[in-house]
């Protein structure tokens, strides 16, 4: 329903672009403005004079940039990366059928679907629990490394990459929910039982940590370096 409006379809946006076609639009930082991260209100920047300034509209603390963005993003990302190992090695689920039980890991679940010919569902689980987390590690690592160097390389694309990480990230919780639903349903004592195992705890924590990591990253830092 919503049609994307090209920047030049709108007066002021087009105006700014036309005035200086080769240079970037004015930044809030240079104009002495700061926008509230919670409600979006644009305020005058008095953070220099007063340490902590609440937004006059919603009361959230104003920041020019997210505090300690790069350090926090790195810390959460590394923690997630470390926990991703037990998440994949340890079993996430225990299935017992007529007395004989077996543990399954995330990857063995994917393989089981693939080998029985359920390629579609194997792909969905593979994307949600392997491709998305690994893609997030790589993307955030790339964003962090290039931002620390103040690189002006592919800024627009890096901004888009960040937005993709934000949108896609929480789909990894899929595996946790599958284990939850399956364990809630299959509890025919002795005949068939499915129980969650500790691997799913590590996996869930990995997803939460990568989400927090992506939230701590401030995409404005991508644009803060000098132009080439």
């Amino acid at each position: 329903m919503s049609r994307p409006a090209a920047p030049d379809a709108h007066g002021s946006v087009a105006h700014q672009r036309e005035e200086a076609p080769m240079s970037r639009p004015a930044r809030a930082l240079d104009l002495g403005l700061v926008s509230c991260h919670a409600c979006g209100l644009v305020c005058e920047d008095v953070l220099e004079r007063q340490g902590r300034v609440p937004c006059p509209r919603c009361g959230a603390a104003l920041h020019r940039r997210k505090p300690d963005s790069l350090a926090r993003t790195w810390a959460l990302l590394i923690a997630a990366l470390i926990l991703y190992i037990p998440a994949n090695v340890l079993p996430v689920m225990y299935t017992s059928l007529l007395g004989s039980g077996s543990d399954s890991t995330i990857l063995s679940g994917v393989v089981a679907f693939w080998s029985t010919g359920s390629y579609g569902i194997a792909l969905v689980i593979f994307i949600a629990s392997v491709a998305v987390p690994c893609g997030k590690f790589l993307s955030l690592g790339l964003l962090l490394a290039s931002t620390r160097r103040g690189s002006s390389w592919a800024r627009r694309e890096r901004s888009k990459l960040y937005r993709m990480v934000e949108v896609v990230g929480y789909w990894s919780m899929l595996d946790v929910l599958v284990v939850a639903v399956v364990a809630a349903l299959i509890r025919f004592h002795g005949l068939a039982d499915i129980e969650p195992r500790v691997g799913i705890l590590y996996f869930g924590v990995v997803v939460i940590l990568t989400m927090l990591s992506a939230m701590s990253f401030d995409p404005r830092l991508i644009w803060d370096g000098k132009d080439e």
Binding site: Q16, R27, L33, S35, R155, S159
Partner: peptide, 10 residues
């Protein structure tokens, strides 16, 4: 309005 992704002001 300030773009929350790149700080551009409009």
């Amino acid at each position: 309005v300030v773009c929350e992704h790149c700080d551009a002001t409009y």
